[in-house]
Design a protein around this nucleic acid. Sequence first.
DNA 1: GATATACTTGAATGTTCATTCAAGTGCCCT
DNA 2: AGGGCACTTGAATGAACATTCAAGTATATC
Lengths: 194, 194
Amino acid sequence: MRSAEFDRSHVLEQAMHTFMEHGYAKASMQKLTQATGLHPGSIYCAFGSKKGLFIEAVSFYHQQKLQAFESLFSEDQPVLSSLKELLANTVQECVQNTCAKVCLLTRSLNEIEGQDPEIARLIATNLQQIELSLGEQIARAQRQGEAISDEEPLALARFITMGVYGMRTYAFTNADQSILEQMATQLLRAIEKH
Amino acid sequence: MRSAEFDRSHVLEQAMHTFMEHGYAKASMQKLTQATGLHPGSIYCAFGSKKGLFIEAVSFYHQQKLQAFESLFSEDQPVLSSLKELLANTVQECVQNTCAKVCLLTRSLNEIEGQDPEIARLIATNLQQIELSLGEQIARAQRQGEAISDEEPLALARFITMGVYGMRTYAFTNADQSILEQMATQLLRAIEKH
DNA sequence: GATATACTTGAATGTTCATTCAAGTGCCCT
DNA sequence: AGGGCACTTGAATGAACATTCAAGTATATC
C-alpha cells in the first residue's frame, strides 16, 4: 500500500474556491488542477470526474456553513441576537470583493437549473437542511418568549431564508453595505412580534 | 440592397428561450442555430457574436418585463393591488415546469458573476430600472394614502425586489405554490402600514 | 533489499465549442 | 434586363474542453 500524497480537505478547499470564483461550467479542469496542485489523473482517481469533485466541494461548503450556523445559535444567547448576527455576517460576505461574496449553493443552483437534476437535488437538500435548522431555532425563540411573531416557525424560517437568497442576488446588482444592512433590518422587523 | 430574411424579434424570442432554458454558457451555438433557424454566419452577421446575441436577448427580455410591469401598474388602480398581482404572477412563473420559471436577468447575473463585468453591469442596470419604477409606484401609493409603510419608497422597493429575487432562487429548492404564495403575503405585510 | 501495490504523472485522445469565410443566392436599383 | 451588393449557407478551423492511460515512482511488507 501507499497512501495518497495530498490532503483531501485542502484539495476540496481549493476546488471549492475555484468553483465559487468561476462557477461550475467555467471552472475548467485546467483551473482545477492549478488550484489544487493535483494532476488530472489524480483528480479522476480520487473523485471520479469533474462532477464528482464538484459534488464533494459543494458538500464541503455545506458542512462549513452548517457548522458556522450551529456555533452561532448557541443555547445561551437569544435566538434573535444570533439571527441578527447571521444576517450581519451575510452582509459582510456580500460586500467582499472576493469569491467569498458568493454562496456556492445558491449560485450553483441558479447555474445548474435545467441541466443536472442530481446536482440540483443535492444542493436543494443542503439548503433545506439549513432552513430546517433555522426553523428549530425560531421555534425555540417562540418557546423562550422572545419578541418574535407567533406564525408557524417554518414559515418564518422560509421567509428569512428567502431573504438571504434575495440579498445575495441583490448584492450582485448593488453591493452597498448600508443598503444591505437596511434589508437585513427590514427582514428582522418582518418577523418580530407586533 | 437586400433586406434580411428573418424577423429579428422572432429570432430574439427564440434565442431568449434558449438562454433561459440552458443558461448562457450551456446555450451552444448549435442549440441557438437550431432554435432560431439561422445559420452561424447569419447570427454572426446580425449580432456579431454569441455574446452580442445574448446581450440583445437580455434586452429583449428586459423590455418585455418592463412593459408587463408598466401595464400592470395603471393609474386607476391601487398600487397595492397591482403589487399583489405582480407577486402572484411571479409565483405563477416560479411553479411552471417550463423555462418560464426562470428570470433570465437574475439567473444570468448569478451565472456571469466574476466572468464578464460588461454583461453584469448591463443586467444590473436593467434590474435597477425596474426597481426604480417600483419605487415610483410606491411613492404614488404613499401620496394616495394607501395602507403602506411611510419608510423611504426606494427602501421599500428594494425590499420587494430582494423578495422577488429570493423567491426565484427559493423556488429552485421547493416550487410549492402555497409556500410561495405565503412568502408573497409575508412580503406584502412587511411593507404595509401598521 | 526485493517485490508487489498503489499512487502520480502529463502527454495524448476525441469531442465540443465559438467563430470564420469563400461560394452561392436572391433582391434592388438603374 | 442586368449588374452589383448584401445576405445566406454550411463546411472548415483551431482552440479549449473533459477524460484516459501507459509509463514512472514511491512506499509498505516480507
